[in-house]
Design a protein around this nucleic acid. Structure first.
Lengths: 113, 113
DNA sequence: GCAATACTGAAGTTTTCACTTGACTATTTG
DNA sequence: CAAATAGTCAAGTGAAAACTTCAGTATTGC
């Protein structure tokens, strides 16, 4: 379990870097309703198709998105595998925190600022 | 369910922006083992305590981190609530994707690049 | 009380990265 | 085949943001 997390760190880093941009998150939200082409995406985003392509490359490189080119049209859709990787990491973060809290009995409560 | 997701969008955006930085992720990983002070964190990160403080503010503003000042030492520790918010969002992304895939019967498979 | 420690705040620098432009390739349609 | 459409590539620009420095405020220990 510690091993699987270590092996996934590089992946998770790239996923979180990818999701750390609001335009890429808008792309994810658009694609969560239906598959769309590059220019379909560019229109509501209000940016050039070139910019969209650059974002797609990043989302694809960390398995948050898949695409296939039919003729001259590239259709894009979400890829579950990246989200699964992320889901594992988040739940591991949370559970390791909970384990620690159980051991210590909740010493830290609030901040002061 | 759609409502709860919509209400959480602002939160999730700030969480993902926060996690979209490698130094802040290193802070999270350090704190997943034990609570640490600001200067405890600065040492392994190789940056100034000022920079750490700036990151802490961001992590705290989206409930990924809590801290409490005892005397002149601020002790930091992970906050589960931010991770829970994120976990919900990720799983909603994944399940909406799966629902769509079920309806369409898996038309898109691979990319070509 | 004085020095050292732990952190915070404001302001400046540097770097990163999102986006554009312009040129190019490949596909479709008249 | 020519024009239009869909996308890609390389290079350049601009703005956001990560980090530093320096000055300042509490707290602790001698």
């Amino acid at each position: 379990m510690a091993t699987s997390m270590a092996l996934r760190v590089g992946k998770v880093d790239r996923i979180l870097d990818a999701l750390g941009d609001s335009t890429r998150r808008r792309i994810i939200r658009l694609l969560s309703t239906r598959p769309m082409s590059v220019s379909d995406l560019a229109k509501p985003l209000g940016i050039t198709v070139t910019a969209v392509t650059q974002h797609l490359r990043i989302l694809q490189s960390c398995a948050l998105l898949t695409s296939r080119k039919n003729g001259r049209v590239r259709m894009c859709s979400l890829d579950a595998s990246g989200f699964e990787t992320l889901e594992h990491w988040v739940s591991e973060c949370r559970t390791s925190w909970e384990r620690r809290l159980d051991r210590l009995g909740g010493i830290l409560d609030e901040d002061d600022t």
